[in-house]
Design a protein around this nucleic acid. Structure first.
Lengths: 341, 341
DNA sequence: CTGAAAGCGCTAACAG
DNA sequence: CTGTTAGCGCTTTCAG
C-alpha cells in the first residue's frame, strides 16, 4: 500500500537515489540510458514523489493560500466569488500551482489561518480578497516580506501587488449612462460599507453627478440592507419621497436583483418607472427579467491576473507594474433603456 | 527572516527538541513548569511549526483535496457550487482541516490531479463532486483504499461514502406540487445529461406523472441548451406545440431563470401562463421576478456533511451509515401559484 | 518526566 | 555523468 520511495526506484533501476532525484527534476546531464532505466522503474513501481518531503528541502510548496475574508458568508452568496475563483484556478493550474483555502469567522481566526499558512511554510504566497480600509494582515505580510497579492486595491501602500478595476471610473461610466438617458434624479444603492471597492464606486457616482451639475440627494442613497429578508424595505422609503429618483446605480448585480423585485412589489417596473445599472455582469444578470444593464468588470480576468501576479512575484520575476487595472465596460441591457414599442 | 525551528525554541528554553515537540502535541506527562518555559520561548521567537516537516513524519496533512470536475466551467457558473463549498469549508474549519483545490480541463488532467494529491501524500482524503455514471477515479481510489467521499451517489458501489439528496423523490414532490395545482400537461427541462443527479430527477418526474395517470409527452422534454446564448430558443418549439405544457419542472434554478426570461420574450408570463418549479433554492431564486418555487436540497448542508463524513473516515471512526441522504423540502413561491388578485 | 538518536523522503553540494 | 554524504524540521522509540 504505502507507495514506493525514491530509494526503491533507485534500487530497482540499479542507480543511486540522487540519480533518481535528478531525472525527476530534469537535470540536464544525465545519460539517456539511465533516464530510461529510471523511468521504467518508476513506472513499474507506480512511483509518485512525496510532495511533503520535496518541499521540506526545496522550501517551495507549489501552493497558493486563499484566505477567505470574515465576511465570507456574504461573499459566497455572490456568484462573483465563484467566477473569480474560476479565474484563479485557471491560471494556477497552468503554472502547476494548487490553491489552499481556509475560511475564517473572525478577525482572530483570519490571522491564525494566515499564520498557519505562512509561518508553517505551507504556501508560497497568499491571495487576499476584498481588503478593508486598513488591514492588519496586509501590514503583517508586508513586514515579513512574504509574497502576497490583493484582489482590490491597497489604500495604505502603493508598493503592494494588487489587481483591481478602476471602480471610480466604472461607477462614473455607469452614472453617465443614466445621465445620457435623460435621468436627472439618480439614486445609489451601496455595497458593504467598509470595503474599499464600495467607497470607490460611490465616489465615481458622485463625481459624475457633480460634473453634470446634477443633485446628489442624500435621501437617494440606500444601504445594502435592502436585501434583508426582514419586513423592512428601505427602497419604499426612497420611492415615497416627493422627489423620487428615476434611476439607480447599484453596487452589485445581486443587489440589483433584489431591488427589481422590491420595486415590482411596490408597483413600479423596470425600466418604465425606474432605470437600473449595476456592477459585475454575473452570468445571471443577463437572465434577469428585464436583463440588467451592468458594468462588466472582467471577474474571471481579475482572478486570473491576480494569481499570475502572485506567481511572478514568487518566481522572483521583475514586476514592472505592481498595480494592475482590469478594464471594465458597460453592458447596456433592458433595465436601463425604455423599449420603443 | 527564516522562521525559528524547534531547535531554537529548545535552546532558548533550555530543554531538548523532543520536549518541545511534546508540548506541541499536548503530551500528558510534561511538568507544568517546562510547559510554561517552552511556551514562553515559542512566544518570544514567534515560533510556528513547519507543517511540511510535521506531516512528513506524521503522515497526516490535515488537508482535504477537492478535485473539480472537468465540467468545472458549467459548475462554477452556478451558485450551487459556492454554497456547497461554503458548507465544506465550514466543517473543515471546525475540524482544523484545509481544502486543497485543483481544477482540471480534461479527464487526463483530472486523473493527474488526483494522483498528485493522493500518491504525493498531499491530502488525507478526497472529495469528488458530481460523479458521472461510471467514474474511473472512483474505481482507482477504491482500489487503493484511499479515503474519499462522493457528493452525489455512486451507481456502481454501495460501500462508498456518499452524501446525496433523494433526487428521485425530490422531483416526484416537485411534479406532484404542480399536479396538485391542477396541471395536467407538465414539461421537464433537464440538466447535464450524463450526471447521475439528472437521471434521478427525470425518473422522479416520470414516476409522479405515471402515478397520476398523466401523459409524459416526449415533446415536452427540453434539454439544457435552452440557456444557450445563440439565437435558437428550444422553448419556443415546445410552446408552439398544439398541446403545450402549462407547467415545467426544471432541473436547476439557474436554468429556471433563463426559462422565465425566454417565456417572457415569447409573450408568456409566469405563473399566469406557465407555472414553474425548479431545484436547489439558490439565494437568488427568491429574488427572481416572480420568485421561483423550488426544492430546497440543503446545499450548504450537503457540503458540510460531505466533509464530516470524509473526516470521520480519515479518523478511522466507525461509519454506521455510508450513504447519507440530506432531506429536501419544497418551497412554494410565486412561480407556481397564481395569485388571487 | 526528559534527553539522545534515528529516520520520514527528498535534494544538494562535493567529490569522483 | 553519477554516487556519497549531509541535512530540511519534526516525531518517536528507547533509555534513563
Amino acid at each position: 500500500m504505502s507507495s514506493a520511495t525514491i530509494k526503491d526506484v533507485a534500487k530497482l533501476a540499479g542507480v543511486s537515489p540522487s540519480t533518481v532525484s535528478r531525472v525527476l527534476s530534469q537535470h540536464p546531464k544525465i545519460s539517456p540510458a539511465t533516464v530510461r532505466k529510471v523511468k521504467e522503474a518508476m513506472e513499474t513501481l507506480g512511483y509518485h514523489p512525496n510532495i511533503m518531503a520535496k518541499s521540506l528541502v526545496s522550501k517551495s510548496t507549489q501552493t497558493l493560500g486563499l484566505v477567505l475574508p470574515r465576511s465570507a458568508e456574504e461573499l459566497f452568496i455572490n456568484p462573483f466569488f465563484s467566477e473569480v475563483l474560476r479565474g484563479m484556478l485557471a491560471y494556477a493550474n497552468t503554472a502547476k500551482y494548487d490553491l489552499l483555502m481556509s475560511s475564517a469567522h473572525s478577525q482572530q481566526e483570519e490571522l491564525e489561518a494566515v499564520n498557519r499558512m505562512v509561518m508553517g511554510r505551507r504556501v508560497d504566497g497568499i491571495i487576499l480578497m476584498a481588503p478593508r480600509k486598513s488591514d492588519p494582515i496586509v501590514d503583517r505580510l508586508r513586514e515579513h516580506d512574504f509574497p502576497f497579492v490583493l484582489l482590490g486595491r491597497s489604500v495604505d501602500y502603493d508598493d503592494v501587488l494588487c489587481v483591481n478595476n478602476d471602480n471610480r471610473k466604472a461607477a462614473y461610466d455607469a452614472t453617465n449612462h443614466l445621465i445620457e438617458q435623460g435621468h436627472t434624479r439618480i439614486g445609489y444603492v451601496s455595497g458593504p460599507p467598509d470595503l474599499v471597492v464600495s467607497e470607490d464606486r460611490l465616489a465615481g457616482y458622485r463625481e459624475a453627478l457633480a460634473e453634470a451639475n446634477l443633485p446628489c440627494n442624500r435621501e437617494w442613497l440606500v444601504g445594502t440592507e435592502i436585501l434583508e429578508k426582514s419586513g423592512f424595505h428601505a427602497i419604499s422609503l426612497v420611492m415615497n419621497l416627493p422627489e423620487r429618483p428615476t434611476a439607480f446605480v447599484i453596487a452589485d448585480d445581486v443587489v440589483a436583483f433584489g431591488l427589481i423585485r422590491e420595486l415590482y412589489q411596490a408597483g413600479l417596473s423596470v425600466p418604465q418607472d425606474v432605470s437600473i445599472v449595476s456592477f459585475n455582469n454575473i452570468v445571471m444578470s443577463e437572465l434577469s427579467n428585464p436583463p440588467i444593464s451592468t458594468i462588466d468588470i472582467g471577474i474571471y480576468h481579475l482572478g486570473y491576473l491576480t494569481v499570475q501576479q502572485l506567481i511572478r512575484k514568487i518566481s522572483g520575476e521583475a514586476i514592472t507594474q505592481p498595480q494592475i487595472t482590469v478594464p471594465h465596460r458597460l453592458i447596456v441591457r433592458g433595465s436601463s433603456v425604455r423599449s420603443h414599442k
